[in-house]
Design a protein around this nucleic acid. Structure first.
Lengths: 305, 305
DNA sequence: GCATTTAGTGGACTGAGTCAACTAAATTAT
DNA sequence: ATAATTTAGTTGACTCAGTCCACTAAATGC
């Protein structure tokens, strides 16, 4: 990933948002809390019973610093701590009634600030902003756990997505040139143009509304099904998605009465090869080529159904 | 504005992004600059000739604090200041060569950090994130003006993007079916497969790293150039981008010695038709069709070069 | 021409955050 | 079982980022 304009735009946004958050957080000065205090109190208030390590991890704080802040909170009667019976080194932190009151007051202030910002916007704009925030969050927050991947048939735009994502991947990873994109566009386009629903299929793997994988079955004639354009996106590897896609292909091909399932691949794709071996394919031929620039080893695999 | 769930979600995002930016900004520790130093150096580096008040206003800093930092920068040879002839109280701040070097190094680091984050994402996700950032920015930053659009030749993935975006658009807007995607894939794929750089071209309009438009010139033989797959994304309409793309096509076609420029379109595309009329195309024929499901009016336009 | 505002600076301070060293409990290795 | 290592939390000592106030000098308002 080194798309400079894209990255610069993201940086620009980060600068803007640093500033924006800075302004919002200044307002904590009216309260007796620093921004860090507020973040800690919020975390405790909303996850009653956390431990200090938990806070250190979630808020990326210095343990010494946190320890002192908690001591102060304790002295002020905002929180209470007791040793965790399951691990006597650890403390269970809970808010007192007084602490909860402060926590809620802080929440009201924070809400009011955002409400004030939103007040300047047109109808529907706050919703648009929040939707965009959700998008960013889902993408950048590793703790926002990804939705499970589902398989579905292709719909508008998916074939284009296949062309785009595969081309980008092979270009970045293996330095293949645009002849590869041309090939994928041809294969995928012909699939669409001649699509025979009775004997062909396209599976798209989708996670949280985002495409993350794909595979096609096309009719090769003579009872031979062709598995084509198997792809699993970087972000979704290691989840067994490739296997699931290939299994679907095999199941479908059997059900439709094909005799054999064949595919063409290149030998540097280790993960894919492992799947083909595991699912019973055997290597039938191999030839060196330079179809897309760098030298590669093309392979034909076959599965008797 | 007191839609509590909406506001809470926004707050939640702010908490997350405070954390996120905190992590990113930690990395400035490897450099001799604090976050504030970096923000100031960035601002000076990118707006040569700013004044101290300008920085105070834009970055919301304490003037005394800024003064000291600028003094240090001056001592380290990163910047030079001279009295503003128009207002002798004010200082014009410029970066030295050494300062520019530091500024650029800082930029490289910041870029690398974001690139690292984006590396974990799926194909297309960085674009989605950046698009969402743009949305937020446009809504929350009163000073935000979108980056200018640039035109560039196609590269890996762009043909796939064309197929995807056009298919989605025509499906959503006009209910066209997958035969349209098949057609686009065929046209765009053949363009790539038979690409003749001497007589053909693809322009991609890009804004802040996001593709927002495209058009192709293909060789139709007999001195006729074909303008194909003109498209401007919803988010970039009304900026004259369509006109720019068509102008490029005309310029290119003339330069390459074509006699005529022809195109096929459908009459419900009012904005496109307006461009064709304005640039001198004339309607030569028209036929009703149901190529993609709903009835539509196909049109052939011609421009004598 | 006098009063007030604005740009920038230095002195003096504070307190947020860091680093290293330590205790005590838990876990792992032997 | 016991020793060695890791982990949770704490305290001491410090530093340096950021703030507040008072000031000078130029510009602007009345």
């Amino acid at each position: 990933m080194s798309d400079i304009p894209l990255i610069e735009t993201a940086r620009d946004f980060n600068r803007f948002y640093t500033n924006f958050l800075g302004l919002l957080n200044k307002a904590y000065l009216d309260s007796p809390f620093t921004l860090t205090d507020a973040r800690i109190l919020f975390e405790i208030g909303s996850h009653d019973g956390v431990s200090a390590v938990g806070l250190v991890r979630d808020l990326h704080l210095d343990p010494a610093y946190l320890s002192r802040i908690l001591k102060r909170f304790r002295a002020e009667g905002l929180i209470e701590t007791s040793p965790d019976p399951a691990d006597l080194r650890s403390q269970v932190i809970t808010v007192t009634d007084q602490g909860r009151e402060q926590f809620e007051e802080l929440g009201r202030r924070a809400n009011a600030q955002i409400a004030a910002r939103f007040d300047n916007l047109a109808a529907g704009e706050p919703e648009a902003a929040v939707r965009a925030m959700g998008t960013i969050r889902a993408l950048l927050d590793p703790a926002a756990k990804p939705a499970p991947a589902i398989l579905r048939p292709h719909r508008a735009g998916d074939i284009g997505w296949i062309v785009q994502s595969q081309s980008r991947f092979y270009t970045e990873e293996y330095g293949w040139d645009l002849r590869f994109e041309a090939l994928v566009a041809d294969v995928a386009g012909k699939f669409l143009a001649n699509f025979d629903p009775a004997l062909e299929y396209c599976w798209i793997a989708e996670r949280g509304g985002i495409n993350v994988g794909s595979v096609l079955i096309t009719n090769g004639g003579d009872g031979i099904a062709k598995l084509r354009l198997l792809y699993v996106d970087k972000s979704a590897r290691g989840l067994g998605l490739g296997k699931r896609l290939v299994d679907e292909c095999i199941r479908f091909s059997r059900q439709k009465g094909y005799r054999e399932l064949s595919l063409w691949t290149n030998d540097m794709l280790d993960a894919a090869r492992a799947i083909y071996i595991k699912t019973g394919f055997r290597l039938v031929s191999e030839e060196r080529h330079r179809m897309f620039g760098p030298e590669a080893n093309g392979q034909n695999w076959l599965l008797t159904l």
